[in-house]
Design a protein around this nucleic acid. Sequence first.
DNA 1: CGGTTCACCGTACCGGACGTCCAGTTTGAC
DNA 2: GTCAAACTGGACGTCCGGTACGGTGAACCG
Lengths: 202, 202
Amino acid sequence: MGRGEATRERILAIAESAVLAKGFGATSIEELIAEAGITKSGFFYHFHDKNALARALLERYMAREDAQLDDVFARGRELAGDPLHGFLAGLKLLAETMSDLPGDYPGCLVATYCYQERLFDRDVRELNRRIVLRWRLRFSAILDEIVVQQPPRAPVDTQALADMVSTIIEGGLVLSRATGDSQILPTQLMLLRHYIQLLFEP
Amino acid sequence: MGRGEATRERILAIAESAVLAKGFGATSIEELIAEAGITKSGFFYHFHDKNALARALLERYMAREDAQLDDVFARGRELAGDPLHGFLAGLKLLAETMSDLPGDYPGCLVATYCYQERLFDRDVRELNRRIVLRWRLRFSAILDEIVVQQPPRAPVDTQALADMVSTIIEGGLVLSRATGDSQILPTQLMLLRHYIQLLFEP
DNA sequence: CGGTTCACCGTACCGGACGTCCAGTTTGAC
DNA sequence: GTCAAACTGGACGTCCGGTACGGTGAACCG
């Protein structure tokens, strides 16, 4: 990573935590450059305007999130003999990961963006949308595999069930933040896991 | 409702939709008074600063939400012979209500506030927290009643399950907004309903 | 060794947003 | 007719945010 890239990355890291804490609109460029130790001109060298920052933040976030989910569910799959129990193990690992997160409680950029829609241009909103659809695809692929192997107790809409994973994560984050209780999200993930157990286990 | 109260209410209504669309930080007082047809002095006559507006918005929102939930679950209870099926009916009614909401997709003030924490003073944050705990109490009371009458298939943490209702609603709103698909929230509510069915029905 | 590019710095500017102040005016209730 | 409530009008201060643009040191390149 060259010097420029390092600065860019530093700005993004600072911006992400600020945006998650206060929202995008309330995060000032001045505040970012102060913490990053650069000038305003330096900032605008890397991002042509604030929307470009928003997009870069979201792209970075998506890549990291993807990698984390890949990892968690791959590890879950390795622990189990069949897709169902691999998925269940993955959900448990995810809950544990979420439960051990340090410091100020984290949020989801997708959620902060969708509650400030009007601040962003079409590109950013479309990217946000694609991220959610990507999650749906990720989980529905796993669920489709499970359905083939393990006939469910009741007919299952794998897309809706895939969305349920995202729904629980987003909702759990909101509740965790609102109450200050970081255990809500992992607990909710375990309830989802239980639902899937009831659905598929004999 | 006197003249003053009517103006105040008008400001709040305008502010609520603006805040849900763009976030609190990005909603300007100037913009609100333009739409309300009053002057800045008029605004500050009703709200001593922006935080006071935030608190009033949240209080109004909570009252409305409470009334709606009261209504929906009371109607559900009337349709059914026992608490379990009353709750299930209530969830279905709620899903239908959410599915028929008109116009630009609605959100939840609690969620927008908790993703912009730093903008608000302690009072507002505490109020936000109390709203979520109130929801927990509301649903766990129903669930406790159900558990007594209908032994669940597996041991149930009624508080966590109560939180699951809020989690699904908040998460469903995020996904609905992000994708632009207003059916996600009702669909997710029906999945939650199904989980509760599996938990309690023989 | 000259030139070019990268990665910034310094500084200036404009408008917008919050908030204050205060004097004056309309409205409705009694 | 009086009084308080509910505003209007407009000026003002202050901060910040996005933008613009010219300069500059270091690194690389031929």
